[in-house]
Design a protein around this nucleic acid. Sequence first.
RNA 1: GGGCUCGUAGCUCAGUUGGUUAGAGCGCGUCCCUGAUAAGGACGAGGUCGAUAGUUCGAGUCUAUCCGGGCCCA
Length: 1103
Amino acid sequence: MFEKVKSPCDFIAAEHQVLKFWQETDAFEKLRAKNRGKEPWSFLDGPITANNPMGVHHAWGRTLKDVFQRYFAMTGHELRYQNGFDCQGLWVEVEVEKELGFTSKKDIEAYGLDRFVEKCKQRVRKFSQVQTDQSVRMGYWMDWSDSYFTMSDENNYTIWAFLKKCHDRNLIYKGTDVMPWCPRCGVGLSQMEMHEGYKFIPHRAVFIRLPLRNLGPGKQIPTGQKHYLLVWTTTSWTLTANVACAVAKDLTYLKVRGPDDAIYYFAEGCLDYQRLTEDFKSKDWPSNVPKLSTIKHIFEQQGRCEILAKLKGSELLGWEYDGPFDELPAQQKPGGLPFIDKSFAEKGATAANTHRIIHWDSVQAGEGSGIVHIAPGCGREDHQLAVEHSLPCLAPLDESGIYIEGFDWLTGRDAADHQLTTEIIENLKAKGMMVELERYPHRYPHCWRCNTELLYRLVDEWFISMSWRDEIMKVVDDVRWIPSYGRDREMDWLANMRDWMISKKRYWGLALPIFECTCGHFEVVGSRQELQDRAVDGWKEFDGNSPHRPWIDAVKIRCEKCGQTVSRIPDVGNPWLDAGIVPYSTVKYHSDRDYWSKWIPADLVLECFPGQFRNWFYALLAMSVMMEGKAPFKTLLGHALVRDEQGQEMHKSLGNSIAFEEAAEKMGVDVMRWSFCRQNPSTNLNFGYQAGNQIRNKVFNTFWNVYTFFANYARLDGFDPATAPVPIDKRQDIDRWLLSRLHDLTALANRCLADFDTFTFLRRAEVFFEDLSNWYVRRNRRRFWRPRSSDDTDKLAAYQTLYQTLTTLAKLLAPITPFVCETMYQNLVRSFDSSAPASIHHCNYPRPQDIPHDDTVCHEMDAAIAVVSRALSLREKHSLRVRQPLKELIVNSDDQRTARALSNFRDHILDELNVKTLTVTSDLAQRQKLSIKANFKTLGPKYHQDLKAISACLAQADPAAIAAGAEAGQQITLAADAGQSWTLTPEDILIEKSWPEGLAVAEPPGPMIALDIQITPELFREGLARDLVRHIQQIRKEIDLEIQDHITVTYATDSPEVSRAVAEHGQYICSETLCDNLTPGPTDDGKAITIAGQSVTLKVGRV
RNA sequence: GGGCUCGUAGCUCAGUUGGUUAGAGCGCGUCCCUGAUAAGGACGAGGUCGAUAGUUCGAGUCUAUCCGGGCCCA
């Protein structure tokens, strides 16, 4: 027997009950057991960073992952259900540093690497547990005892194997490069990480003048003259490392007499250039920063600006100048600093004596002066230019952004210190080099973790050469990308990426198995065994520890080349190595190759795509191509970002982010899941409680209310789902219609979910709920209320139809909203059939072929609904409430289908519209009253005097006949009694059509229908009776009666109309309201109501 | 500068292989219904489908160019 169901439902409380139920009944394990050995369906989970609690944005991807896993389980597949945690890397270190109150790497070293790494591991364990608990709450079925951790030994050693393969192909190298560097983290940022932290902020920018030593070798500056290069920079600290200046050959430069009557050189295009005019208008422009001046303006302010000559950039090449900080020892150090180039050193080349103008294609006129200050130790392009033009490099900063030895008064100072910038500017002023100081806002990179402004440093790091990118690009087309432009994104990245920088000078992460000897030779160790075999020292200290710093650092090997004892490089690895190796490290690649082949390539990878084309997807593809020459997944589904309700990015600092737990307990997990699944994954999701409420009202309340309606009546009626089904042809058309719709939805659900598209499915499901609730249930309520009788076949048909629909619907939606579907299933199915699967998630997914479909009935219903909708519109237009019965609905139909539909669904249409009769006709238009008139305009000129007679004659004629003739374009002959006759052309007749009084008509487009809106006194009284019923029902509700309770009603009214209505329709009123006795009488403390302007007092009592 | 992507109602978005009158939700307005009821429903206003040109019998849909937004790369 069904349990009584309450409405509305406390969905959140119900979710907790279901969680308990699953846990107590081991539901997940039973599902696994059921599917073990079946065809595999392989999902590969991208590791979630176990560094913080998960947020609602994680829940999107995890919901989709769960949905597809559940679907493929219900269609009889074996799954691995392995969740992954990303554990290693700087992001964890940063959080641990915060916990411990550290501000620099020195703090970590002082604290002790072993303790620090242990703290990192603890943090990962803690948050992996938090995320596990959260995931369980959201109904994510995974084997939570078997999650993989990227910090595992297996994961780390498998990366070693990958790196070894790379090294076997000579792809690993150590390179120096200038890279963005976070002085706080003491670490270089990869190309991948750079993108995260650009911010529009103002810096102090300077125009300086650098005195020319000559105008090219041998061309002296005329005595008495001063010639300057005008140079501009936003990072004045880099001026200390200036080596050269760059111009573009083809650009035009001006020779200008400027301040101090000196000669200045800069690009012509810069003279009047309005810098950052667009940005100045934008809302991002800092309010305290004034608009930028043009060079012309600056010069004129300082005295003069007189153009003396124009030169091509090529004419400036080779000119030599005095650098801004040539007095620094570093500037005078042969070979540069700190990476001393021997060949330069031998020639005595210093930065200071190298200063000259070089060519660079990228120089443009515009921002700045068109003469670019080049500091090869402080900029990536600068460094490349230095290589091309054989310039020494000065790299002034250490890893904390502090000036190294050799920079005199700057040494030991922090380059990012504002005070230092001020001092540098003062210094330039004192040397007479300052021209102008300004504040210049620009997009400047920041560390995406700690928000520190980045610097550019010359460093040495380890790289994997990507010379083999073609091999990776080849497998990109083996993958199905959803959305399809993902493929192009990935290809774009692969075509443009630089070599992969894999080292980081940090502590918690993959220990790069690179051993570099002082002799220059380096080796890559490919496994733990290999390391043990080659260890000459430290194995004992290491053995028993995870392959992390500091323990791994103890192990030494012997250099193959020179025999020296060699240490591992201290660097740790890029965390995308950790995640990219997962299809190998977590799927027994090394221990069980058959198992691996069974699961890889995975059928599906599903992640949030922003960023991942250059991160995880890239690492997966690259590493797998290196390992096995193929892509490790077949389909990739990417989804976009979660925004707040207004479409703003969610940020804790903005106060608009929603914690997962809060959403779960306030909105409910099923609602959350629905909102994720109904979203087109390629567009950002605006997530919030208002949207959630909408979904709960629209979808969940509707679903629940239909379920409640069914369950409570079925319970009262003793409906038994096991009763032999009423044959489909013995059911009503509307039953066949509903089942056909269910058939269609089932087909769509299978098609969509197998194709990883929840969104199309759910949009259709929402329409289905509408139809189910607002059409099927509303239309069939009376079949369920009907008292029991000897022939209950029709009632049974209704129960069975709705029962099948609800149980099928629950199963169809079980992957999407596993909680509410489970709740319904337990009551609808399990309460009767203890042999049914214990959980809905153990059921087979519904198949369309098991549900009947009748095409004709669907089309007919569409036609019937269209008529109803038009008729309701007519009622609306004429302010006729539906409770007021009307006499007749006339539908014009000249096609068979509509006619058949109207006859089949006649009762539904009449009942729905509260109309007495339905007439179908093919000539509704004929009911229009035609009137014809003479067209005096055309007749006048023809029959001057006869007009009156013609007019009289037309008034006598049969309008229909005349109009028909005129419309057919025929000539019309009129004959008067007097014997006169006229021949009229169609234009001579004016035809006017009007509908008879009392008929409301909906004209084309759309089916033409008419409603007889004349309300006779009988109809009016019937309307009154219905109003009374409605009010009595309302009172029943107010005094909390059960639906099966009987009542007595006493009423009092002065209105003879109402009294007569009661007299005529008492029977009807009583049966509708389960009233045993409806009598006039005293109604003390009764309820006063007004119906149709008449006041009535009602008193209702339970029998 | 190059690549990708988007542009449909006030807002958020659907719109299948080109095919009658371009849809939904929210908001707004006017009502209705109520034995699903702390809900629900109907109707209405609101659109040059970013612009222009082209292909076609027919373009929101295909092509080209331009304008505007976003993402990515340089």
